[in-house]
Design a protein around this nucleic acid. Sequence first.
DNA 1: AGGGAGGGTCGAAGCGCTTCGACTTCTGTT
DNA 2: AACAGAAGTCGAAGCGCTTCGACCCTCCCT
Lengths: 335, 335
Amino acid sequence: MVTIAEVARRAGVSPSTVSYVLSGKRAISTETRERVRRSIHELGYHPNAGARALAGNRSHVIALMMPLRTDMYLPVMMEIALAVATTARTHGYDVLLLTGEEGAAAVRRIADSASADALILMDVELDDERLPLLDEIAPPAVLIGQPADPAGLTCVDLDFAAAGARCVAHLAELGHREIALIGEAPAVYARHTGFAERTLQGARAAARELGVRMLHRPTEGSYDAMAAQITRIFDERPGTTGLVVQNEAVVEPLLSLLRQQGRAVPEDISVVAICPEQVAAQASVRLTSVALPAQEMGRRAVERVVDRLEGREHRPLDLLAPHLTDRASSGPAPV
Amino acid sequence: MVTIAEVARRAGVSPSTVSYVLSGKRAISTETRERVRRSIHELGYHPNAGARALAGNRSHVIALMMPLRTDMYLPVMMEIALAVATTARTHGYDVLLLTGEEGAAAVRRIADSASADALILMDVELDDERLPLLDEIAPPAVLIGQPADPAGLTCVDLDFAAAGARCVAHLAELGHREIALIGEAPAVYARHTGFAERTLQGARAAARELGVRMLHRPTEGSYDAMAAQITRIFDERPGTTGLVVQNEAVVEPLLSLLRQQGRAVPEDISVVAICPEQVAAQASVRLTSVALPAQEMGRRAVERVVDRLEGREHRPLDLLAPHLTDRASSGPAPV
DNA sequence: AGGGAGGGTCGAAGCGCTTCGACTTCTGTT
DNA sequence: AACAGAAGTCGAAGCGCTTCGACCCTCCCT
C-alpha cells in the first residue's frame, strides 16, 4: 500500500507538504507542487479513506437514503441515484446507498459514526419519520421532494403545481374544454403524497382560470383498473377530449385501450403525460409530456449539499420549472 | 461526539475492553459485557467509521459498481442494488454506489484508498475493461453476470440457458410445435451479451431435442419495431402458436398488438416471458414467465462477498435455477 | 502444595492522514 | 541597511479505534 510518506520521500519533501499539495490549503511553490504531483502519479497514490476521514474530520461521502416505500418509481429512483453518484464524484465525493428499511435509525447511525458528510433523502413523505432527526444531527441534509412543512429544510423538487397547470393550459390552448386527470393510485392521495396533491391543485386552478371542466380520477396501476376507469370517464363526460396522465404504469394500457375503442390519438382525444422523457418517447404513441427531470433533481441535490458543505449561500427551496415537450399525442380539439 | 473512551469510562472499564465487547474477539465476562452494552446503548454510541477503518484495516463497506452501459434495465438494476444494500446491512456492511462512468479507474481508486472491503460488479460485459484489474487489487470481487472467461472469478447469475430451455419445454409440453423467440435488440446480440446468447443457446437446444421449430427474432424495444416484427413472424410462419419474449420493453406492445389482430392469448397463441415477476404479474394479461430474480441475485452476491471476506469456502459460480410460474398467458396449442 | 492453563482485563503502540505552530527564506519597504 | 510580512516548508501532535503483549486471577491437575 502506498502511503503519503512514500510519496513525500520520492518527491524529497515532508508528508505535510504532500498533504498541502493535495488540499491546496497552503501555498506551495510551483516546482515543489509539480514534483509532488509527479510522485503521486508515478506511485498511483490514493489517500487512505479511513485515515483521511479520521484526521480531516470529513469522510468525503454523501449518504443517499432511499424512500421508506420502494414499491414504485424504481426507474426514476435509479436515475436520480445515478445522477447523484456521478455528480458527487465531480465534487470529490462518493455515495453511500442506504435503503429505507433501516428507517430513522440509519440517519442516527450515519451521523454518529461520521460515515457521511451530508445526507440526501429521496422521495420524502409528508410526515416523514426521519425529518425530526435532521435537526439533531451534525451533517446537513437535502431533501428530494417536499414534506408537509419544509421550514428550515433544504428541498429540491419539480414544481408539480406548475406542471399540472402547464398540462391543462396546453390542452386549453388547443381548444379542449372537457378534460380528465388520470392520477396515481387512490392510496397515494389518501396518504397526501406531496407531488400528487400539488399536481392536482395546480391543474384545478388552471382549469378554473381557463374555463375548462376537469375530472380527477385516481387510478390503480393495472390494465384492468385503467379499462374500468376509461369507461367511467366517457360515461360520465362523453364530451371529454383531453387527458392528463400522471401514472407511469397506466400509460401504455391507456393507449392500448383507446386504440381498441377506436378513439384516435390525437385526432379524437389528446393525451398529455407527466412522466420521464424516456417513457414518453418510447410509448406506442410519442407522448406530449412534462418531463420528470430525475437526473436534474439528483444533480441539484448534490449541488445544494456541496453548497452547504462549503459554507456557500443558497436558497432552501429549489423548485424546477416544468418543461412541456409537444409530441404526437396532443392536437386541436375535434369540432 | 461520543467516543469509545466515554463508553468505557461510564462502564468502568478500559477502551480496549469495549472494543472487545464490540468485536467479540476476546472473551469478556457476562457481567462486564452487559455493563458495556448498557453504556453503549445509553450513550447512543456508534464507532467512528474512519477510525475503525484505519485501525482495523477494514472499512465495513462493499462497493457496488454499476454497469458501464446504463441505457437499460434500470428497474432491474435498482432492485439488485436495493437487495445488495439491505443484505449488506444484515452483515454489518454499508454500500458505496459507483457509476460505470469512472470505468476501470474506479476499481483502482477504491482499492488503493481502501474505501471498500470488497467489490460487486453489476452486469459485467463479456470483455469488461474492469476485469483484468480485479487480479491486481486486494479487495475480493464478485460479479453479477458472467464474462466471456469466468475463470478465477466469482460470479452470480441466473442460469439463462436453462431459462431459455424451460420456456421452450413449457410450450412443447402444451403441444406447441412452432414457436418464436422475441429477443433483445439486435445490438445486444451483436456485442455478444452473455445472458442473451445463453438464453438463445438453451432455447435452441431444447427446441431441437423436443422437436419444436423455433424462430429467433431480435427486436428493438419500441412499439413500432414490435409491430413490424409480429407481422414478419406470422408471414414467415403462419403456424406459430407460441412466443417466448425476452425483452421487457416490448411485452405490453406485443400483447396490445395481439389483441388488435384478434389473436386471443392464450387460446390462439401462448406467450411466455423472461422478465421480473412484477412485469409479468402487472401486464395486461398475467404472463406465464420465468422470473428474473433481481433481489435474489443481489442477496447472493453479498453472501458470496461475505463468504470470501470471512475466509469461508464457496463455489465460484453461483447459477440460479430458473423458476417458471404458470399464469394466464399460456395454454394448450390450438388444434 | 506447586505449576500450568486459560479467562478476563488493561496499557500502549500504532493505523495514515491533517493541521498547527514554528522556522527559514525571500520580497518590498522605508 | 534594516525590517515587516509573505511565501514555502517541516516536525509533531493528534483524530478514535484495534490489537498485541502483559498481567493478574482462578481453577484444575499431578
